[in-house]
Design a protein around this nucleic acid. Sequence first.
DNA 1: TAGATTGTTAATCGATTAACAATC
DNA 2: TAGATTGTTAATCGATTAACAATC
Lengths: 210, 210
Amino acid sequence: MEVKGISQAVISRLPRYFRYLGELKDEGIERVSSQELSDIMQVTASQIRQDLNNFGGFGQQGYGYNVEYLYEEIGRILGLDQEHNLIIVGAGHLGQALVNYRDFERRGFIFRGIFDNNPQIRGMQIHGILVRPMEEMEQFVREKGIDIAVLTIPKESAVEVAEQLVSYGIKGIWNFAHVDLHVPQGIQVESVHLSDSLMKLSYNLSSGSI
Amino acid sequence: MEVKGISQAVISRLPRYFRYLGELKDEGIERVSSQELSDIMQVTASQIRQDLNNFGGFGQQGYGYNVEYLYEEIGRILGLDQEHNLIIVGAGHLGQALVNYRDFERRGFIFRGIFDNNPQIRGMQIHGILVRPMEEMEQFVREKGIDIAVLTIPKESAVEVAEQLVSYGIKGIWNFAHVDLHVPQGIQVESVHLSDSLMKLSYNLSSGSI
DNA sequence: TAGATTGTTAATCGATTAACAATC
DNA sequence: TAGATTGTTAATCGATTAACAATC
């Protein structure tokens, strides 16, 4: 199952395949060909087959792909068959938004704790989860086997907090701070730079409307 | 100034250049060579020069690039010299998080209104902005010259609301709903699919730790 | 079996990197 | 002027698309 050297371009497309297959599944559709999927998703059928075949032959000649089976397989490839224990660091609106988002839990991403240094919200409950002071983070991470930390703190503290988290044994960081994090080998960082995204939109607005 | 046919790969890198140049500027650094920038940013000097030269020759042989000038130019390329009028559609935590994020306003993205159909929050103020009912959206968009709508609503209503917004004259949609939006030519959509991002992290956690 | 559609190899296209002449 | 570094062309690399033999 551990396939090596898959490019990030391919990996970036997997969640989208997963989403469309989930919709087909919910519609009760049993099978789909790469060509049909191509029509719906606006990518070439060739790319779909090429992408999938990085991980194995999930289809059948003359038939296509079984929707439910392919959905399950892609879920497995994405690691959605495993549970992940998450903490949120930074209980601002963004942190709260993520905790409240039900979809993550459905996919095996379980929020175990929320940490924030603001004494005003300390002790509050968000989505039934207690907001704890940062001093308790190390013990919490180690004891609860937290593997993913979600950084929704200002960029000023993000680098330092990320280093701490890594030293506590965290394996992945979902970074919303507007800064690039450098972490040791084996630690994964996935950054969501919201203002980068907005600037891209801004560029396309100015130049796309010639 | 309107350069055609720049690939999205290049455009995606511009905000990151902009960010690093801003930091250099704040540190009072006057000039930088592509090689120095390469060392800091972990991209090749060749790529930096190639990227920048899509838009013009901003450097000087034997000298490098003037930090402040290049910063300003990239800002201009990204359209940050122009003001954008935004509305938020969906006053949940995510919508509130974005409204409260001061950085956007600094870059010329001004939040003019917030819309939500939930009667419980209608009439509330968020960051000094009134939450209005969706029925007032059309008039508001047309009268205030809103050009960007931020969709922080569930995917169920996103497609329909996006269509409405386009018919009201919106030019860009910053989409946080977990659905792909299809819009007419000339309208720009920039999507932030948070769960896609989390799944990518999940994949890299499972496969990266072999 | 014939038809359909995959898996996979080969061809093309685009993006990145290297090299170097131009020039400050 | 000599040294440094860009702008730009050429070479390489990787990703996408096309084609088709394998096979259900």
